[in-house]
Amino acid sequence: MMLHTLAVLVENNPGVLARVSGLFARRAYNIYSLTVCQTENPSLSLMTIVVEGDIQVIEQVTKQLHKLVVVHKVTNLTKEAVVDRELALIRVKVRTETRLEILQAVDIFRGRVVDMGKSNLTIELTGDEDKINAFVRTMRTYGIQELVRTGKIAIARSDN
């Protein structure tokens, strides 16, 4: 089963998220991740939804989304050349012996330390999903105390 990234341009009104997520729930489509943000046009929001499913399922999802009056446009970014990113904040346990190793890893992954406790570090990392997964795996060996991820956002590469 493949993951598809859909960019869904919707009206920026209360209840719109419920309509979209309700549609997924009711039709038993699986949302892998979902992010919502305002667009340049304040009356519109952009939802980036990562859905699991084969081609038929994605086609149905797209058609059903189009039927919602609040949905203006659905673009499947999976087929296109895109730049996609996720942001993660990771709080990892740290001891004197591991501090240097962790900081090196942060450096290699081009992350940043954004907070520091007595026995932990909070690291900010952006990148595509694979990169974040790889970093999370590395940090597991030290012990992850907390992890938050934004889910994917994506933008099509420009033609020129």
């Binding site: 038929q56 086609e59 149905q60 058609k63 059903q64 189009h66 039927k67």
Partner: peptide, 8 residues
């Protein structure tokens, strides 16, 4: 008239 019915 409903494209979502086609192929459903």
């Amino acid at each position: 008239i409903d494209p979502a019915e086609i192929g459903k």
